[in-house]
Amino acid sequence: MKRFLRDNGLGLAFALLFLASLVGQAFAGNAALNEHRLTDGGDPVGLWQYVVSSDFAVDVAENWQSEYLQFFVFIFATVWLVQRGSTESKPAKRLGRESDEEQSLGAHGKPESPPWARAGGWRTRLYSNSLGLVMLALFLGSWGAQSIAGHSAYNNEQLVDFQDPVSWGRYVLSADFWNRSLQNWQSEFLAIGSMAVFSVYLRQRGSSQSKPVGAPHTATDENG
């Protein structure tokens, strides 16, 4: 068990942080909603009623979709784009998809290589893009969930204000939907771009996201 915890510490730690943050968001969001409802003369709602509501779902989904969009764009962008000196970039000499030999694919596979990397054909092609495709699927799924939950929450507000509800198609073209999406996208692109540039000049001793403290600024694709 001790070895398992050591070997999976990063994933487990972030899983716990995720759950703690999600629970905290539920309590804080419920309190904020009830404060708003009481101000408007409405009745407060219980925690579970809030957790299964569209208000909670849209807040969660809009954050998830922006995170997965960030990873999807960054994964594919780093195939063709480089940032000299950044730990988030590969060296310019490896620009592009690289050769089968460099990637240990097909006949160039090693005994310890994943089976689909050595299989050749469609399985190797699929596996060669599996990380980006999964991130794309998660982004589209969570963005779709945001649109559905946001549509429901938006129409609830419309009814409270004695206005007609709108169709899903009209909602996804609305300012509300795109404001929710774009306010998250810009922060994600800013964060990942900042990290790529800051890692050229700044260091964090012992972190895999940083070069060794004494490495030159021009050293690329190195971590300590």
Rank of each mutant, 00 (worst) to 15 (best):
S66A: 12
V60S: 01
L126S: 13
V51I: 10
L33K: 00
N63M: 12
V82P: 10
V200C: 05
E157V: 08
D7W: 07
V58L: 10
V51N: 00
M135N: 02
V79C: 06
R6D: 10
F177C: 00
A191N: 11
S113D: 12
L140T: 03
K110T: 05
R125W: 12
L190S: 05
R180E: 05
E101I: 08
F198H: 07
I192S: 06
G11D: 11
S187Y: 05
V200R: 15
D40R: 14
G29Q: 01
E88G: 15
E102P: 08
L138S: 11
L105R: 04
M1V: 06
V73L: 06
T39N: 11
T218R: 07
Q65R: 10
L69C: 03
L17N: 12
F72I: 02
N63K: 05
S113N: 06
K2A: 10
W178Q: 00
H217E: 14
T218V: 11
L33G: 00
G41N: 12
S174Q: 02
A219W: 15
S128M: 05
G214L: 15
L202N: 14
I75K: 06
T39Q: 15
S208D: 11
Y127M: 05
S21A: 12
L202W: 10
V51H: 01
P216D: 08
F27V: 09
S147Q: 05
S128E: 09
A13L: 09
R3S: 13
S152L: 07
L19W: 09
D59N: 10
R97D: 15
S152Q: 15
W143E: 08
G42I: 15
S147D: 03
W64N: 10
W178R: 00
L17A: 12
G42V: 08
L131Y: 07
Y154H: 12
P115R: 13
L136V: 00
V166M: 04
G46K: 01
P216T: 06
R123T: 14
A20I: 14
A119G: 02
P91G: 15
A149R: 00
R94I: 08
D55C: 08
F56M: 03
L12R: 03
W143C: 08
T87K: 03
R37F: 05
L133M: 14
Q204G: 14
Y154D: 01
A196Q: 04
N8A: 07
F189R: 01
P111I: 02
S199G: 09
L95Y: 11
G109M: 03
I75Y: 14
I192H: 14
V58F: 13
V134L: 12
V166W: 03
W80H: 14
K110D: 07
G120C: 04
